[in-house]
Amino acid sequence: MATLPPWMERPSRIVQAGKAVLIAAIVLIMLYPFCYMIAMSFASKESSTGGFWPTAFSLDAYTSILGGGVVTRALLVSLFVTVVGTALSLTLTSTLAYGLTRIRDVPGARAVLIIVLATMFIGAGIIPNFLLVKSLGLIDSLWSLILPVMISAFNLVVVRNFFMNIPASLYEAARIDGAGNLWIFLRVVLPLSKPVLAVIGLFYAVGYWNSFFHALLYINDTAKWPIQVVLNQYVIQGSQIANLQGGNDIAVPPAQSVQMAVVVLATLPILLIYPFLQRHFAKGMLTGAIKE
């Protein structure tokens, strides 16, 4: 009787128990900073924040930073950049990817594809990019956080490969019915591409929401800072609480509570969106590998 390879044999109970303990330990190690951050963000002024868990809870930290000051304004800026940027990026990435799948129908498509692939290996650099943004008059404009990174070459390649693996019979059937390229793209390609578009949309949204370096380069007006820059200025650089609150005359909670509350607000939107798109990850990434 043929024996199974070692990696296919059922592990013993001791090995299974060891794996369970190891996984539980890893989960606890990963969850500890997150739980500590949330707990400390609710610590009141009377609470002792020396241990892991505060002794008294309140919403003073969130009331303080959401009182119309810098944090609230930064959240709105990040929300605008993320929503508008993701919508534009998905639109341009999907249309360009579809055009690059029709190399025989679109003149110059092969040359454009080569240029796009070249950008994955060759970058202009910080100074040329800054000079370009400055020459376009985008300094201190929120569009400087969107236009330079509107299309990702990697995301474009992923979407293009997905489009190329859509069965050719669907294109042929649509053309027999008299459909043009635009109708095929809107009525055939996009409905079948929801998984990959959801995944790429999440990639773009995370990138725009976490926009930090470009904001430091292009945004000098503090009123237009996104949440990640405010997070760095307060939590890392240690800016004064009053500055973040816009000078509101309200009770000031512990500095650590305000710092943790800012971190929670900067992290929460992506955590809320991810569970709804997680189910598309495997399908969006693996469907493109299936041939007709």
Rank of each mutant, 00 (worst) to 15 (best):
G178C: 04
M164K: 15
F130Q: 08
V112Y: 01
Y171P: 03
D177P: 07
L131Y: 10
A124G: 01
P167Y: 06
L136S: 02
F162V: 00
I166E: 12
S152Q: 10
M120Q: 14
L138C: 00
A109W: 07
S135G: 11
I151Q: 14
G108M: 13
V133Q: 13
I146A: 05
I146Y: 08
N165R: 13
T119R: 05
A179I: 01
L117M: 03
N161F: 12
F154E: 13
I151A: 14
F154N: 12
S144Y: 10
I126C: 04
S141P: 15
A173H: 09
L138T: 00
W183M: 05
Y171H: 01
S169T: 05
M164T: 11
A179S: 02
A179Q: 03
V112M: 03
F185D: 02
F130Y: 08
N165H: 13
A111H: 07
V133P: 10
G178T: 06
L113P: 14
R175T: 10
F185R: 00
V157R: 15
P167A: 03
V158K: 14
W183A: 01
L170N: 02
D177V: 04
L131N: 10
D140E: 08
L156E: 11
E172M: 08
F130K: 05
G125I: 11
S144P: 07
D140Y: 07
A109E: 09
